[in-house]
Design a protein around this nucleic acid. Structure first.
Lengths: 199, 199, 199, 199
DNA sequence: TATGAATGAGGGTTCATTCAT
DNA sequence: CATGAATGAACCCTCATTCAT
C-alpha cells in the first residue's frame, strides 16, 4: 500500500473514530458534519469523498462495531469448548454483557441505533439497514440448537431482546439495579425461557 | 367555561394531536415546530404559549398517552376478576399487546421515546423524564405478587422489557414473525420466567 | 378623585416605575413591553391605553425625571441666597453631581438617553424630543448672568456638557478617577472657563 | 495572494463598510444582520464566517475607525513642528473637529458608541470594550505635558470630554450654534482650562 | 377601562452541500 | 485527492400589536 493510500485510509479512520465519539456523547442529531471534520482534523469537503452524509457514516460504524462485538464473543466461545447448548447460550449472553459493561460508549451507540431491540434495524432518514454480521452469529447459534429446541429462532430472538433491553439502564444508570445484581436474575429468566422451549 | 377558555383548550389539543401524528410518522428530529403549527392551523407564536419547545410537548404527550395505555389495561383487569397472579400478568401483557397492535402509531411513539426499554426514561436535549403513571400500574402488580414471587420487581422488569422489545418489529414489520405467531411463544417465555421466580 | 381614577393612575405609575427600573438595568432595547407589564402586574393591553410604545414611555420618563433633577437643584439654590454668579453656577454643578452620585440609576438612565450630551435630544426610532424643563432652569441661569458674561448661553452650554460627560464614567466606574477626586479639578476647569468669559 | 484570499478580504470589507453605513444611519439596534448582508451582497451565512454577531462587527469597526482618526491627527501634528504644549493641544482639538465636521457619519458612529464621553467604553450586550489606539495618542500628549501641567491626565480627560460632547449637536444640527460659531468659544474654554492647570 | 390569547413578521443562527482552487 | 470559503434554506424563538371578551 502506497503512502497516498495510507493517508487516505488515515482520514477515513479519523472520520469514523471521531464520528463514533461524537455520536455516542452528543447523539446523532446533535452532531454536525462540521463537528466531525473539525475534530478529525480534515477539511469539510473531504467528508463527502468517503461518506454520503451523516447517516451513511453512522450505518457504516454500526456494522463495523457490532460485527466486532459478536465475532469476538463467538470466537471466545469456540476457544472455550463448551458443548451443552444451554451453557453456550449463557456464555454468549455473559460475554456480550461484559463487553458492553466495559465499553459503555459502545452500549450507548448500539442502543441509540437499534432503537427498540437488538434484533433488527435502524431507521433514520427513511433508510432501513440490516446488520448482516449479527445475523451470522445468530444463525450459527440457531443451527446448533435445532434438534434440542422447539423453535430455536424465536427463542433466541426473545432471549436476545430480553438481554438487550434489560441491561441498558442497568449498566448506564444502575436502574432498577446495577448490572452485577441483575445478572443472576437475568440468567434465571433465560433458563426459564430455555426450559419452556426444550424438547 | 367561557369562549376564550374553550378556544384555548382547542388550540392546545390541536397542537398535541398534530405533534403526535408528526412525531410518530416523521420522528421527533425531523419534525419542526413550523410543521406542527402549520398542520394544526395555529400561528407559530401560539405554540410557545403552551409549550416550551419540541421536547416539552413530546414529554407531555408521552406522559399522557402512556398513562392512558396502562390505566386502561389495569381497569380492564379489575373488571375481569382474575385472582391467580400468573393469569393477571398474562392478562396485562395481552391487553397491552392488543392495544399496541391496534394502535401502531402509539407503539412507534412510545418505542421511539422509551429508547431501549419500556422501563424508564427518555433522554432528549439533556432532560431525563420519568413517567410516573407507568410506575403506578407497575407498583400495583409488584405489591400483589410479593408473597408468591421471590423478586417481583426485577421479574416484572424483565417481563416488561421482554414484551416491549419483542413486539416492536413483530407488530410493525412482522419480523421475525407476525405478532399472532409470536404471541404464544412470548407467553411461553413469560411462563418460563415466572416459573423460575415462583417461591 | 374616584376609586376608578385612582386605580387608573396606579397602573400608569406602576408602568412608569417598572419601565424606569428595567430601562436602567437592562437597557431600552433589551427590555420588552412584555417584561414591563409582567413586572408591573398589569395586562399587556393596558400598556397601550397609556403609552404609544416603548419609546413613548421612555420619553415621558425622561421628561419627568430630568425635570425633577433640575427643579430640585434650582430650588435649593434659591434657598441658599447666593448672589455671585460664579458661586451660583458652581452650586448647581455640585448639586446635580451629588444627586447623580447618590442616584446612579438616574445617571445611567439620563446618560443612556441623552446620548452625547446633557444639552439636547434623544433620538430613538426617528423621534426627536426636547426636554423643556431642562431648558427652563438653563434659561434662568442664562438671564441672570447676561451682563457679567460675554456669551452666557454658549458658556453654560459648554459647562453643562463638560460636567455631563466627565462625571459619567467617574461615578459609575471610577474612571479615570473617582468622583470625589475629580470634583476639585472639575471646578477648576469650570472656573477657568468662567474666567475666559467674564467681561 | 491567491484569488481566494482576495475575494475573502473583499467580502469582509464589504460587510464592514455596509455595517458602518447602516449603524450610523439607522443605529445599531435598528440594523439587522439581514440588512447588512443584503446590502453588502453576500449570503447570510458568510457574515458568521467573519464576525460573531452584530456587536462584534461594531467593536471591530469602532477600533478601526477611531484609530484612524487619532493617528491621522497625531501624524499631522508631528509634521507641523509645534513646540508649545498649548498650541499642540489646540491643534489636535482643531484637527479632530475638522475631521468630524467633514465626516459626519464618523461623528455619529463614534458618538453613538462612546456613549457619554470620548474617553472610555462601549457597553452593549454586557461587553465592555476599550479602544487602545485612542489611549496611545492620549498617553503621548500626557507625557509631553507632564512638567508644565499639574494634572495632565485629568486636564486632558476633561478637555477631550468637553470637545466630544460639545461638537456633536453643533456639527449635526447646528445646535445651539453651528460649529464655526462654536469653535472660537470652545478654544476659549480650552484655554481657560489650561490656564487653571498650568504650573 | 381592562384583559390576555392569538398573531405572524422578522430576528439571529446553524449547517449540509457545492465548487473553484 | 483535498481543501475550505461561500451559500441560502430552514431552523427556533421573540415580541409588538390587535381584538374579542
Amino acid at each position: 500500500m502506497g503512502k497516498v493510500s495510507e493517508n487516505k485510509q488515515q482520514k477515513r479512520e479519523a472520520l469514523l473514530n471521531t464520528a463514533f465519539k461524537l455520536f455516542t456523547t452528543k447523539g446523532l442529531h446533535n452532531t454536525s458534519i462540521s463537528d466531525i471534520v473539525e475534530q478529525a482534523g480534515v477539511a469539510k469537503g473531504t467528508f463527502y469523498l468517503y461518506f454520503k452524509d451523516k447517516y451513511d457514516i453512522n450505518n457504516k460504524l454500526m456494522v463495523h462495531r457490532s460485527t466486532e462485538l459478536f465475532d469476538a464473543a463467538m470466537e471466545r466461545l469456540a476457544q472455550k469448548g463448551l458443548t451443552d447448548h444451554r451453557e453456550r447460550i449463557l456464555f454468549i449472553a455473559n460475554d456480550i454483557i461484559d463487553s458492553l459493561t466495559e465499553n459503555k460508549l459502545l452500549l450507548m451507540f448500539i442502543s441509540k441505533n437499534l432503537g427498540m431491540g437488538f434484533y433488527h434495524f435502524t431507521m433514520e432518514n427513511e433508510q432501513i439497514v440490516e446488520y448482516p454480521s449479527i445475523h451470522n452469529a445468530y444463525e450459527e447459534l440457531v443451527r446448533e440448537t435445532e434438534n434440542k429446541i422447539s423453535d430455536p429462532k424465536l427463542m433466541l430472538y426473545m432471549i436476545i431482546e430480553l438481554i438487550g433491553s434489560s441491561i441498558y439502564s442497568s449498566i448506564l444508570y444502575s436502574q432498577p439495579v446495577d448490572i452485577e445484581t441483575l445478572k443472576p436474575h437475568l440468567y434465571r429468566s433465560i433458563n426459564g425461557i430455555i426450559d419452556q422451549f426444550t424438547i
